[in-house]
Simulated scan of single mutants.
Amino acid sequence: MTKSHPSEALLEVDNLHVSFKTHGGEVKAVRGVSFTLNPGETLAIVGESGCGKSVTARSVMRLLPEHTSRITQGSIRFKGRELTQLTEKQLRELRGSEISMIFQDAMTALNPTITIGEQIMEGIIRHQKLSRAEARRQAVEMLQLVGIPNPELRLKQYLHEFSGGMRQRMMIAIAAVGRPSVLIADEPTTALDVTIQAQIIDLFKMLQRTTGVSIILITHDLGVVAKIADRVNVMYAGQVVESGTVRELFHQPQHPYTKGLLASIPRLDTDRGLPLAPIPGTPPDLFAPPAGCAFAARCSHAMEVCSAYMPQPTPVTGSHEAACWLQDPRARQAFQTPPKISIKTALG
């Protein structure tokens, strides 16, 4: 989809294909994903569960299980370095120091038998080759930075002694302590109440201001996207179906799936009692992906060509693309523009 000039891009993913081997056959989880990430920006990847968001993110860090998954095609370049060709030893040096990931569930991502201090200090000692005393000092500073009170005491505590919001802050501290260039956040606000969500979003913004880190945000929450993202990639059935700036995606969505996601958001500017508009049907089976547009079976605008041929990304503006046959000049007359949705409305 939309790509930046190579000299500007920090991370470049080009035509990425990822498959999983199962007893039932090969699952084609990611099918030709392309995007770029520029220094200091936040790129959101959105879509429903199973669309390939987390698989794409884990592929960047090469964290998928080798015995069941493989990158069948494509390129992942970080600062011009091809990550798909690195050895496991080279990847271990890269993870944590250059690219870090905040996993979705702190209770399963963190070790409940080791103190929080040991888990934060581990990366500092490994990548920066510092003494335990200096690593401890940096760990205290990082806890202060992410808003954890009494950091000296907290270093000695275990996971069960923290609330959900505090655990998420710990995850961010562990990921950010090595001062990486790229921070991948996989559903960082899931299962948190709206007040804590707002605090976590503000924390990401603060980290970006103070460290200049670039963020890839994996989420299904469009309200969070509206608050923090610069650009958005909308994924469906392992593909990026639309990409653009936040304003373009919220004000001028072009793909029917993007419009469906926006239409499913509760509105405050309409009459109360108006039912939500869910997207009918179910995603396609990725054991045998359709030959054409993966959304065709659920799309009210689908034409014969949609099921037969895969649509290619079509520029809408210089920064906005949509992979949809409705963008073809011959189909423009069938295209219906829905009422615009503002970012403020999406936030509720």
Score class of each variant (00 low, 15 high):
Pro6Gln: 12
Leu11Thr: 05
Glu12Pro: 14
Val13Gly: 03
Gly25Ala: 09
Glu26Asn: 13
Lys28Glu: 09
Ala29Asn: 08
Gly32Thr: 00
Ser34Asn: 01
Phe35Leu: 00
Asn38Pro: 06
Ile45Met: 05
Glu48Lys: 01
Glu48Leu: 04
Ala57Gln: 12
Val60Met: 08
Thr68Ser: 14
Ile71Val: 11
Thr72Val: 06
Gly74Asp: 02
Gly80Lys: 04
Leu86Gly: 11
Thr87Ala: 10
Leu91Met: 15
Glu93Trp: 15
Leu94Trp: 05
Ile99Glu: 05
Ile116Leu: 08
Ile120Lys: 08
Arg126Cys: 10
Arg126Asp: 10
Ser131Met: 03
Arg136Asn: 15
Arg136His: 15
Gln144Val: 11
Gln144Pro: 09
Gly147Glu: 03
Ile148Tyr: 04
Leu153Ala: 15
Leu155Pro: 01
Lys156Cys: 08
Leu159Gly: 11
Phe162Ala: 10
Phe162Asp: 08
Ser163Lys: 02
Met166Ala: 04
Arg169Asp: 13
Gly178Pro: 08
Thr190Lys: 07
Arg209Asn: 12
Leu217Ser: 00
Leu222Cys: 06
Val224Tyr: 03
Ala229Val: 02
Val241Asp: 01
Thr245Met: 07
Val246Trp: 06
Arg247Leu: 15
Glu248Phe: 09
Gln252Lys: 13
Pro256Asn: 01
Lys259Glu: 02
Gly260Pro: 05
Leu261Ser: 08
Leu262Gly: 03
Thr270Val: 14
Leu274Val: 15
Pro289Asn: 08
Ala291Met: 10
Ala302Gly: 03
Ala302Leu: 02
Ala308Arg: 12
Tyr309Lys: 13
Val316Glu: 03
His320Ser: 05
Thr345Ser: 12
